[in-house]
Computed example of a mutant assay.
Amino acid sequence: MTQRVFAAILAMGLGACASTQSVETGTVSDPYEGFNRQMFAFNSEVDKYALGPAAGAYETVTPEFARDRVGDFLHNLKSPVIFINDVLQGEGDRAGDTLGRFLINSTIGVAGLWDVAGYNGIEKHSEDFGQTLAVWGVESGPYLVLPLMGPTTPRDLFGGGIDRALDPLNWTEFADNPDLDDHIAIGRSVLGGLNARVALDDQIEQLNAQPEPYVALRRIYSSQRQAEIRNGRINEEEAYDDLPDFDEFE
C-alpha cells in the first residue's frame, strides 16, 4: 500500500504546469473553489516536502542523458493508447505517425530508449480519452483539484480511467511472478513523476511566484487542455474574463 501511495504522489498532476498557450479559452467553471483551494494547498505541501526533494535527489544521481532515455522509453509505452485515441478522434494522419513512431522506436530505437522517429522528423504527440470525449462533444464539467492527482475535470477523470483500461501493460500477466505487473506500474509512475518534476522545476517556481498561484494553475490547465483537444490549433475568438492581473509566464 505504501508503494502505491508513494507512486501516486510522484505521479500527481503537475503536467498541467508544463507550458502555457498564447490563447486563453473562456471562463473556467469552478463552483467548488473552496474545496479546490484546500486541495491545491495540500498538493503544494506534498510537492514542497516530498516530491520536490525526491526529484532533486533523482536529478543529482541521474545524468540528463539517462533522464532523456527514461522519458523516451515511457512515452513509447504510451503509444498504443495514443494510437487508439487518434483513431477514435478520426485523426488518420496522427494515428499513422503514432504507429510509425512506435514501430521505429521499438526496434531501431532499442525498445523506445531513443526517439529515432523524432530525430527523423516524425514528431511525438499525446492523446487521451478525455480529449477524445471532448472531440465527441462531451462537456468537461467543473474544474476540480484532487488530492495527489492535481487539476482535472470529471471528463478527464473518467477519460483517465478508460486510458488505463486500454493500456495493454495493465492487462499483462506474468505466470512466474504475479506481482510483476504491479511493480512495473509502480516503476512507470515513479520514474515518470520524477522525470516530469525535474523537467518542470523552473515552471513550478514561476507558478509559485505568482500573486495567485491557484488561479494561474487553473488558467494553465484549462488553456493547455483546450490546445491539446484542438491539437494545437488556436481559436482566437475565445478569451478569459475571470482573471485578476498577474505576471505572464514566459
Rank of each mutant, 00 (worst) to 15 (best):
D245K: 03
Y240F: 12
V215R: 10
K48N: 04
T27F: 02
Q38K: 14
N43Y: 04
A8C: 02
A11Y: 09
A55V: 00
L74K: 06
R218W: 07
I234L: 12
T98V: 14
H125D: 12
F65T: 13
N195I: 00
V110N: 01
D241T: 15
R230N: 14
S22F: 11
Q89L: 03
Q21F: 13
I229C: 05
D182R: 13
I108Q: 07
V215A: 14
T62Y: 02
F6S: 08
A196F: 02
G26T: 01
L217G: 03
T2E: 01
Y119G: 15
A199V: 07
F174H: 14
R225D: 00
A95R: 07
M12S: 15
L157E: 06
R219S: 07
I84T: 15
E173G: 11
G121K: 08
I122S: 05
F102A: 12
G112T: 14
P53C: 07
V145H: 13
S189R: 14
C17V: 08
G90A: 00
S19G: 04
E248S: 08
G96N: 04
P151K: 07
A185W: 13
P178W: 03
D97H: 14
P151F: 01
G34R: 09
G112K: 10
S140P: 04
M12V: 11
N177P: 02
V28G: 03
S19N: 07
N195D: 13
V87G: 09
L133C: 02
T20D: 14
S44F: 04
V138R: 14
I82C: 04
L77C: 06
M1A: 05
Y214N: 03
V46R: 03
A18T: 08
Q21V: 09
F73L: 06
D201Q: 13
L217C: 01
P53W: 04
H183M: 10
T153M: 00
S222C: 06
P63G: 07
